[in-house]
Design a protein around this nucleic acid. Structure first.
Lengths: 347, 347
DNA sequence: TGAATTATTCAAATCGTTTTAAATTTGGCT
DNA sequence: AGCCAAATTTAAAACGATTTGAATAATTCA
């Protein structure tokens, strides 16, 4: 392996000058920079990361803990994030070290990795209210960036979408189409994102002068089948009134809802409108639904670069920044005007 | 952070002696070792990995590339392996760096990580015949361990199970129960493991004096639904004869096969016997099948420690070792004697 | 007791880079 | 020529561990 010293020897320069030349310091003679670059290229010089890290005190590695659910099912979103994050971090010359959370104690894997003492920071995801990881990492003074946020106003670095607005946009659209009976099939209630969606939903429903009775708000839906069974139940109705519109936590759930509608002999969007939040996962494309699905869209992949950059900057000494984007509302064919005979609010 | 020098200063010793004391060198006075240990414990000394790595030339990190399928679906087995591998590697003080294979070129992610020059070796999985990664890594002289093997006899480090024997055991069991019409629903044909299973199946069928016509050998089954549809097809029979037994690549596929049998009005094991290979994934437990599933069992989790140890040893200079274990045959209730009226070979 | 071992310990080099402080060269100006 | 400032380069220290070769202390043997 080529070293700075070797390059220096070849050119009659010191390692220090070579280092500066390659790192673009302004005080190096332009011709010298040229010559150094040329030799470095020729012999294929690559800086020794370890040496670099020893002296800078940074490792250029960040960690991420994967939380595996009790049933060990693989999280579809995980690969999407993993792909995007390794690419975004790689662009800034940072590597991702993964570990798995298999304990009951959510902090244990962080402790283990911190003890190793080779990571510059952590990427956190799936925040819950009062997430214990935040206090823990903060106390240890270890940089981290959260995907999403554990509460509406936080002062740690985070990036995510406005989940309350996601529901609000959906409800407003449906209300403008005349819908008065809007159901929600929400995700895992323990996560903050779901709490935010629920809050936004309730607020928007109220703001539109409507109500949604509890039986028509479902929590903890995950699979297509969850969407199917919950929608089937809801479509049985109450006192002869059934929801005319569904707000779904994911396109997967929306698929289940649409299947339920079909099984009940209802068509979308003539009888029932369906809108979902779309993480833009490759395997569940909203456009290829029949009819094409109206969504609030915020590709998970788009979060990767901001998260990576936020973290790398933070490690570099920047101050923690919060960034909350708004999901895009894309109206397609799964939402339509409320059917005339169903345009009354809940009895 | 505590350093060797600090400990030495406190005890009036040189850093060199402290280093040796902590690393158990024999030439250090026992009392000295005691005193050093005591101080190190008290101030919570942890060796600086980076410094250690600079001088030893090792990084104590190994890489693994995750291949994501075209549909981006998460591989169920991946999390199981990831969990076990991080634990097994961690026990030997090694970290796992992950990257994602998203290119058409299977070598690209390896190139990128190698270029980074921070990894001691690689863990490979899902070998295919003539796997290009082998020649590539070998040429670059980078240690690696394969989970499974790309061909029957190889000279690189690997650990796996005897996949030909898996099928042979299954066929032999079924044959001993009188079955003459045995079907195979195999996994992804492009992988070596599936080729081995097919080879073992054909050999065993022949050895038992039987045949299995091509329509009753299915390839590329992955999901429960694949198992369902392929079994449904096969159970329609040929010239009035249907398979009396199924050998399945996974418990998931077996679940589909059993559903298909049920839909055809057949009961397991009275009308149809089902045997599967069981990777012992937590979400698809063979014992909780109705009836409990007969399997060849080789927990994926059990492969993690051998793989980790093989690789760490290899990095440490050991010679590449091949280890092939035999899966355990566990007879439960899903296999039984062939029904009397179906005990004839294919017409 | 003195010499020869043996058991401990130490100073210094090493790994390859970055960075500080000092030294050298260059150029401009009087 | 002489002097000052700017431009460029260098030597050396630093990061924190391991390891080599040498030095010192403790023991053994004659």
């Amino acid at each position: 392996m080529a070293t700075l010293k070797q390059i220096g020897a070849e050119l009659g320069l010191s390692a220090a000058t070579v280092s500066r030349a390659l790192n673009g310091f302004p005080e190096v003679n332009k011709q010298t920079v040229e010559r150094v670059r040329e030799v470095a290229d020729r012999i294929g010089y690559r800086p020794n990361r370890i040496a670099q890290r020893l002296v800078t005190g940074r490792s250029n590695m960040v960690g991420m803990i994967i939380k595996i659910r009790a049933d060990m099912s693989a999280d579809q979103t995980f690969f999407e994030m993993l792909t995007g994050l390794t690419a975004a971090l790689g662009a800034r010359d940072v590597d991702l070290v993964l570990a798995v959370d298999q304990d009951d104690d959510p902090l244990q894997p962080y402790r283990k990795l911190i003890e190793r003492d080779i990571l510059d920071g952590f990427l956190l995801n799936a925040p819950v209210p009062d997430d214990p990881r935040i206090a823990f990492l903060r106390e240890k003074n270890i940089p981290f960036v959260m995907h999403g946020q554990s509460a509406p106003d936080v002062d740690y670095a985070c990036y995510g979408i406005d989940n309350a607005a996601v529901s609000e946009d959906a409800v407003r659209l449906l209300s403008s189409l005349g819908h008065k009976r809007i159901a929600l099939i929400n995700g895992q209630a323990r996560y903050t994102y779901a709490a935010d969606r629920l809050r936004g939903f309730r607020q928007a429903v109220k703001a539109e002068g409507l109500t949604t009775p509890d039986p028509f708000i479902a929590q903890d839906a995950e699979t297509e089948n969850d969407g199917y069974t919950k929608a089937l139940e809801m479509l049985a109705g109450r006192d002869g009134a059934r929801p005319t519109a569904f707000v779904c936590a994911s396109t997967l759930i929306a698929a289940g809802v649409m299947r339920a509608a079909k099984d009940r002999g209802l068509t979308v969007p003539e009888d029932v409108s369906v809108i979902a939040h779309d993480d833009a996962l490759p395997q569940m494309k909203a456009v290829s639904f029949e009819p094409a699905l109206t969504v609030t869209r915020a590709p998970l992949r788009d979060a990767c670069a901001p998260l990576a950059n936020l973290l790398v900057d933070l490690v570099g000494g920047a101050t923690p920044q919060q960034k909350i984007d708004r999901a895009e509302l894309i109206v397609r064919q799964s939402t339509g005007p409320v059917p005339a005979q169903e345009s009354e609010p809940w009895p």
